[in-house]
């Protein structure tokens, strides 16, 4: 029986490293199609939270449910990805010695097992999806070039294209605005709003201007648990949040 209709459901999750509780009784729900911003000072547990959702880190206790039926704490990164969790790293991570096109081919939703992959041929519909994605990320002219030869911004776009090609239902995005100009930041916020709806997106971010631009529900993380939740105006009026961010 399904316990929840949330796409992602974290309940009382705790994980500690050498006695330090990186995540401490964290609970969080993400609805299908929702765009959620997660903010918090350094060491609040944002990255660990993403590691738990993507199966990289196993929590000591608590529940992490996918669509109310899959227990993400028992799965690894590949399993979580196959279920529909996509992850964008802060630093663009693409396969440098592969061509732009092959990067997308590897990301394309398909059978990931060894033997079928060994015998796989690129089908017409797959090629069409790659072409469409190349157009979307504006790298059509660079399709046969190695990813290593792309500029920083182009690599960011390629990685986003790879994530979309993977067709995830939940996208975790780590500090997308880092190192971007104001214009690019606004553009990225718009892109993320467009992406959400069809799929859920969790954005982890430091940049308050960027979060304001997203204009969505915000979860404030502090010392491994959710301190406050609501609109940005609501949470920034919360005295505890003010203390964590400005105080002492």
């Amino acid at each position: 029986m399904k316990e929840t209709r949330a796409l992602l459901y974290l309940d009382d999750v705790t994980v500690s490293f050498d006695g330090f509780k990186a995540i401490n009784g964290l609970s969080l729900f993400v609805e299908p199609g929702e765009l959620r911003a997660v903010i918090g000072p350094n060491g609040a547990g944002k990255t660990t939270m993403m590691d738990i959702i993507t199966g990289k880190t196993r929590p000591d206790s608590g529940k992490v449910l996918w669509k109310g039926e899959h227990d993400l704490t028992k799965l690894d990164e590949a399993d979580a990805a196959r279920l529909g969790v996509g992850r964008k790293f802060q630093k663009p991570t693409v396969f440098e010695t592969h061509t732009v096109e092959d990067n997308l081919l590897l990301a394309l939703k398909a059978d990931r097992r060894v033997i079928p992959t060994l015998f796989a041929r690129t089908r017409k519909d797959e090629q069409a999806r790659i072409d469409a994605m190349l157009a979307l990320i504006r790298l059509e002219a660079r399709r046969a070039d190695l990813a290593a030869d792309l500029s920083h911004g182009q690599k960011q776009w390629l990685e986003i294209g790879m994530l979309l090609a993977q067709e995830p239902e939940l996208l975790l995005v780590d500090e997308p605005a880092a190192g971007m100009t104001d214009d690019e930041t606004m553009e990225t916020a718009k892109l993320l709003r467009d992406i959400a709806g069809e799929r859920s997106v969790i954005v982890v971010e430091h940049d308050m201007a960027f979060v304001r631009e997203l204009d969505v529900k915000v979860s404030v993380l502090h010392e491994g648990s959710v301190l406050a939740e609501g609109s940005l105006d609501h949470v920034s009026a919360d005295p505890r949040v003010i203390e964590v961010y400005l105080g002492r």
Binding site: T54, D76, E77, A78, A81, R82, G86, R87, F89, T93, V94, F95, E96, T97, H98, D102, L105, L106, A107, R112, R113, V114, T117, L118, F119, A120, T122, M162, Q166
Partner: peptide, 23 residues
């Protein structure tokens, strides 16, 4: 083969390959 491309992907960015769903 495509699996060969996955091998090179593992060599270049192992964690990215995992997060794409490859074991």
């Amino acid at each position: 083969s495509k699996a060969g491309k996955v091998l090179v992907a593992v060599r270049d960015a192992e964690s990215r390959t995992r997060f794409l769903g490859y074991k």
